[in-house]
Design a binder for these strands. Structure first.
Length: 469
RNA sequence: GGCGCGGUACCCAAGCGGCUAAGGGAGAGGUCUGCAAAACCUCGAUUCGCCGGUUCGAGUCCGGCCCGCGCCUCCA
């Protein structure tokens, strides 16, 4: 049985999709006003784990991730640069997708853009106006949270406490828009001179932040769908407001399971531009941390715990991944005796059970990784004693590939030939070794290492590996 | 002030009432090897932030305290 921690209910609950065998998933995507940092990618990696695991367990997953391509900051910064919001967001959009690919995150089925779903948003706002839940003020339209009794149920914030909560006062005064009640939020913002706006049946203007997710999720996934993910910072106000809009409009439950991922901090501190610790994916790659190590690092801490990023942890992640890769390599580049060993089947079955049970328990990745590493250790131990036959090697390869459908650490199958000049060097070294010229042999090995090839002398002869980029 | 997360070996990190406290990294010693690499074997927390309590039995439950972190209308 699969169980997840649902933020709304505040506990781990059994997971049952609305339609058997199909999970409808909506995840909050980037606001493309800047380059994504590794904290953003932590959330996307968590969602990738969730999605790949659901597929691993036999579900189809229909996944929608929104792209926020219009908001206050985008308008401000595009204006400052004197370009359209489309021109402004394009490089960030490209960079986001490049990161998704680099980290081997399974792409969503759709990435709807906010600017392409204005009519869908207007339709909901229209409906909320008609129901008297939304009201107009100075050209803007606000959602009256007093009209939605369930307001605060996700974030556990009580409505009457909202305005007395400290810190809030200053922010309310700073707000440029007049509202009936301080806690009400904007569905539609009045146009301002020189800023983008849309002519619509509810008047000119641009959407508030929250409405796009209500509009796009219901369009592609239905008015009630299975899972909605995001970072914990989205619980309030973003997701709270989505619930209010969607449920007030549709009159039915919005989301069945809310899964939120905690933050990533760096060296024990919150990431902040001012601290200079806000790393992008490219920053890490430039520092020599391979993408798979980044993936492993972001994957390796349970999603509901704060992940403390350090470069030491990144190096450890790299080494851990290497252990998996070396094991896979061993299975592919070794001769196996013609024997049978029943133990292997038992080990594989046990690892598979533990892997599934771990992830089924609210995505307990530690248990799942333990299953993988225990299998590797046991298998290596048998391998060292030459007690794994050809058939068992196939079993192990299949198990590894199966786990890797979720973890995605193994390299893509690649061309396994050395460029001729390098192959010639390997040959020359073999001749040198046969004539006991170990000095020359070691020179060649060092040369090849500089060129990204590591040589290993085994009982079956010399073999080479590509060193992780 | 409100809501929430966490403090387990040098580092990362499971376990959440009961066999010897997972797993990975780093470290020490050994095996194999021309040397390496990889791998294997062995070692490594009498102890789980602190203090009380419940229990036959507690990192695991209860109470108090200390410390770190996040959110509270920009934020993954």
């Amino acid at each position: 049985m699969i169980k997840f921690f649902d933020t709304l209910r505040g506990e781990v609950v059994p997971f049952e999709p609305l339609l058997p065998g199909e999970v409808r998933l909506y995840t909050c995507g980037p606001t493309v006003y800047n380059y994504a940092h590794i904290g953003n990618f932590r959330a996307y990696i968590f969602e990738d784990l969730l999605k790949r695991f659901l597929r691993f367990m036999g579900s189809r997953v229909l996944h929608v991730m929104n792209i926020t391509d219009v908001d206050d900051k985008i308008i401000r910064d595009a204006g400052a640069r004197g370009v359209s919001i489309g021109e402004f967001t394009e490089p960030y959009l490209k960079s986001f997708f490049a990161g998704i690919e680099t980290l081997r995150i399974a792409p969503a089925d759709r990435y709807p853009l906010a600017t392409e779903h204005i009519p869908e948003m207007v339709r909901i706002i229209r409906g909320l106006l008609d129901k008297g839940i939304a009201y107009r003020k100075d050209g803007s339209i606000y959602f009256s949270i007093a009209k939605f009794p369930g307001y605060g149920k996700l974030s556990k914030i009580k409505r009457d406490e909202l305005q007395t909560t400290s810190r809030i006062g200053a922010r309310i005064e700073a707000d440029e828009y007049e509202k009936e009640s301080a806690q009400d939020f904007a569905l539609w913002k009045a146009p301002k001179p020189g800023e983008p706006s849309w002519e619509t049946e509810i008047g000119p203007g641009r959407p508030g932040w929250h409405i796009e997710c209500s509009a796009m999720s219901s369009k592609y996934l239905g008015e009630t769908f299975d899972i909605h993910c995001g970072g914990v910072d989205n619980i309030f106000p973003h997701h709270e407001n989505e619930i209010a809009q969607s449920e007030a409009f549709a009159g039915k439950p919005f989301v069945r399971y809310w899964l939120h991922c905690h933050h990533l901090i760096v060296d024990g501190e919150k990431m902040a531009k001012s601290k200079g610790n806000q790393y992008t994916l490219d920053d890490l790659l430039r520092r020599g941390i391979p993408a798979t190590a980044v993936r492993f690092l972001l994957l390796g801490t349970h999603y509901r715990k704060v992940l403390n990023f350090t470069f030491e942890a990144a190096d450890q992640a790299k080494a851990s991944v290497q252990r998996v890769l070396d094991f896979a390599y061993e299975l592919d580049h070794r001769s196996f005796p013609e024997i049978r060993n029943e133990d292997v089947q038992r080990l594989v079955a046990e690892a598979d059970r533990k892997f599934r049970d771990g992830l089924s328990d609210d995505l307990n990745i530690s248990t799942a990784l333990t299953a993988l590493f225990e299998l590797i250790r046991e298998a290596n131990s048998l391998l060292a004693r030459n007690k794994i036959g050809r058939g068992e090697a196939d079993l192990l390869r299949a198990a590894l590939r199966s786990f890797d459908e979720v973890l995605v650490l193994l390299p893509e199958p690649q061309e396994e030939t050395l460029p001729p000049d390098l192959a010639a060097l390997v040959e020359e070294r073999e001749r040198a070794r046969r004539s006991m010229d170990f000095k020359r042999a070691d020179e060649i090995r060092a040369e090849l290492l500089r060129r990204g090839i590591i040589l290993e002398d085994t009982r079956d002869g010399v073999r080479w590996k590509i060193v992780q980029p």
